[in-house]
Amino acid sequence: MVCVSCLTCMNVCQNTDMSQGGVGIDLETSLGYLLKEASSALRQAMEAVLRPLEMTVTHYSCLELLAQRPGLSNSELARGAFVTRQSMNVLLQSLERGGDVSRSAEPPVGKVRPTRLTPQGRRSLAKATAAVRSVEVRMLGGMTPADQSAAFTILQSMIHSLRNENESA
Rank of each mutant, 00 (worst) to 15 (best):
V2M: 09
C6Y: 04
T8I: 09
T8L: 09
N11H: 01
Q14I: 02
N15F: 08
N15M: 10
T16R: 14
D17A: 13
S19R: 11
D26E: 03
E28Q: 11
E28V: 10
S30A: 01
L31F: 11
L31K: 11
G32A: 08
Y33D: 04
L34Q: 13
K36G: 09
S39A: 13
A41R: 14
L42M: 15
L42F: 14
R43D: 13
E47G: 05
A48V: 05
A48E: 06
V49L: 00
V49S: 00
L50E: 00
L53W: 02
M55A: 03
M55Y: 03
T56Y: 01
V57R: 01
V57L: 01
H59A: 02
S61E: 14
S61Q: 13
C62V: 07
L63M: 06
E64W: 14
G71P: 07
L72V: 08
S73Q: 03
S73G: 04
E76G: 10
L77C: 07
A78E: 03
A78C: 05
R79C: 08
R79P: 07
R79L: 12
A81D: 01
A81Y: 01
T84S: 01
S87E: 09
S87M: 07
L92F: 04
L92D: 05
Q93Y: 14
S94G: 15
R97C: 14
R97I: 15
R97K: 15
G98N: 15
G98I: 11
G99L: 08
G99E: 07
D100Q: 11
V101E: 03
E106A: 12
E106S: 12
P108C: 01
V109I: 07
V109T: 04
V112W: 00
V112A: 02
V112T: 01
R113F: 00
